[in-house]
Design a protein around this nucleic acid. Structure first.
Ligand SMILES: [Zn+2]
Ligand SMILES: [Zn+2]
Ligand SMILES: [Zn+2]
Ligand SMILES: [Zn+2]
Lengths: 185, 185
DNA sequence: CGCGGTGTTGTTATATGATTACATATCCCC
DNA sequence: GGGGATATGTAATCATATAACAACACCGCG
């Protein structure tokens, strides 16, 4: 049994995380930015669940030398990671998620499941183009478009109902259908 | 000099607010929902600046009988207003803004200026359609699409730079170019 | 080497945003 | 008038994010 078992679709998540870290190292090296130990650890913790994660959830796991770090430490690292495109911020969840393709600049477009909490990253050119057109028509200069679609992912559509679901045993991290959920525990 | 002078584009804002309140009254009456004094006051305060406003900013103005109300009072009213489409919540700002056309259901699409803080509401069918297609292609069932575009509005593009701007005297509510701004004071 | 600038981290406190749990009041229908 | 649904009051607490300031580390340069 692997050490980090919490993802929706089965895959070799340990490899998945180490890959993300390796790519991040390479990217920072090529750009002359510094992926310090703290930043690296935060990035690893963002990836750990392969789903959106809140800053304080990361903070809880951030023991450095057995000592709990300050919130600012985590936020500063997250700012760096977001600025460098290694992590996206999900505005509607106040949460962060690792970007699988940080090498090319892109805004985040996400399908966020209200049940399992997973966030699927899209990169739909039609959506981007439609937004760009609409903004241009009004003379608005875009910094960063945000597209976050809340709903129900295909997997969760096929489960009877989250709160009564017998699948809780095999997917213990399932979210309750609350109004405004947290990204994680 | 009017009592509520803080908007970007000059217009008769007092009429603008009273119009929104009248429409809200009519809409609630037709639906059988109740626009209570508290809800009405919160709606008025949401509209007061004609721009996104945080819950606690509203709270600060919410003296009822000279007494400060509890946060929950404001949040409950905001929940009602959002559910009834009278107000939109801006996820990227944790703020609320009045909807100019609450009569027909629609998700909010916004162009949010990073300088003046104004939010222009769009309703672009191409954007909606592109998002719907993209979600359908992945079997994702949409609850609520969120589109919030951060950038610079036409007015602010023509001012030299927010922090050095001489226009501060005529637009005292201008925002600083900070990383993650508040909706209001 | 030693200096000074830039960038990173530490520490403490606080602002802002949102919810839980429970009690009380009010309205409307019967 | 009883009784259920809706609305508000009160207190405490949780969650998210930033401010202000100090210390340290790295790096290029004289
Ligand atoms: Zn993974
Ligand atoms: Zn991405
Ligand atoms: Zn107005
Ligand atoms: Zn609207």
């Amino acid at each position: 049994m692997p050490t980090t078992p919490q993802t929706t679709i089965h895959h070799d998540h340990d490899t998945c995380v180490s890959g993300a870290l390796t790519r991040a190292e390479a990217l920072c090296a090529s750009r002359g930015t510094k992926l310090t130990p703290i930043r690296r650890q935060v990035l690893e913790l963002v990836w750990s669940g392969h789903r959106p994660r809140g800053a304080y959830a990361i903070l809880d796991d951030m023991k450095v030398d057995g000592k709990r770090v300050a919130p600012l430490t985590v936020y500063r690292a997250l700012d760096f990671l977001v600025e460098n495109g290694l992590v996206h911020r999900l505005e509607s969840l106040n949460a962060y998620i690792g970007c699988p393709s940080p090498d090319h600049a892109h805004p985040g477009q996400f399908l966020v499941c209200r049940d399992c909490g997973d966030a699927i990253e899209l990169n739909d050119q039609r959506v981007s183009a439609a937004i760009a057109d609409s903004a241009r028509a009004r003379g608005f200069q875009i910094d960063r478009p945000t597209v976050e679609v809340r709903g129900l992912c295909p997997v969760c559509q096929n489960r009877p109902h989250p709160s009564h679901s017998p699948a809780d045993t095999e997917r213990p991290e399932a979210r309750q259908p609350v109004t405004r959920q947290k990204a994680e525990s």
